[in-house]
């Protein structure tokens, strides 16, 4: 039984070390992801409504999809009109909720050209599934 006690203590200490390490690297990564860089190229205003996304470019044009260039640093300002939506760029594995009354931000810089799926990740009503569009990245 004495060995079992030692083993248990060792397990607990091991778990503490591993979990502290995960928390530490996650914290560092979180600050990196959540701090927008100083050299923002464009600010795009994103608005979620039942059941579609609209995007307002810096020049005032409004569109239902996003076209950007590779290497461009984009800051999204995310709003919602009616209920909570979640702005989810699937292939970039990142999302930010769009909350009525709030303005949330999210920044991206994409190096690989292609078509990326924009989905809604928060149940927002009967059209939730079909609240999709594309992020198109060209050279």
């Amino acid at each position: 039984m004495h060995t079992a006690k030692k083993l248990e203590l060792l397990t607990v200490l091991g778990a503490i070390v591993i979990l502290t390490y995960i928390t530490a690297i996650s914290t560092v990564a979180l600050y990196e992801i959540d701090t927008p860089p100083d050299d923002i190229d464009r600010i795009i205003k994103v608005t979620g409504r039942q059941f579609f996304w609209t995007f307002e470019m810096p020049d005032g044009t409004i569109s239902n999809e996003i076209r950007i260039k590779t290497g461009e640093t984009i800051l999204f300002e995310i709003r919602a009109e009616d209920v909570i939506h979640s702005f989810f760029i699937r292939e970039l594995a990142i999302k930010q909720d769009a909350v009525p009354g709030h303005v949330e931000t999210l920044w991206i810089r994409v190096d690989k050209p292609g078509e990326y799926n924009i989905l809604c990740a928060e149940l927002c009503g009967t059209g939730h599934t079909f609240m999709t569009t594309k992020l198109i990245v060209t050279e």
């Binding site: 996650s26 594995a93 990142i94 999302k95």
Partner: peptide, 15 residues
């Protein structure tokens, strides 16, 4: 534990 890590949760939340 995966979803507890915030940067990973950005990908996994609501999926």
């Amino acid at each position: 534990v995966f979803t507890a890590s915030i940067p990973i949760d950005y990908a996994l939340h609501d999926t």
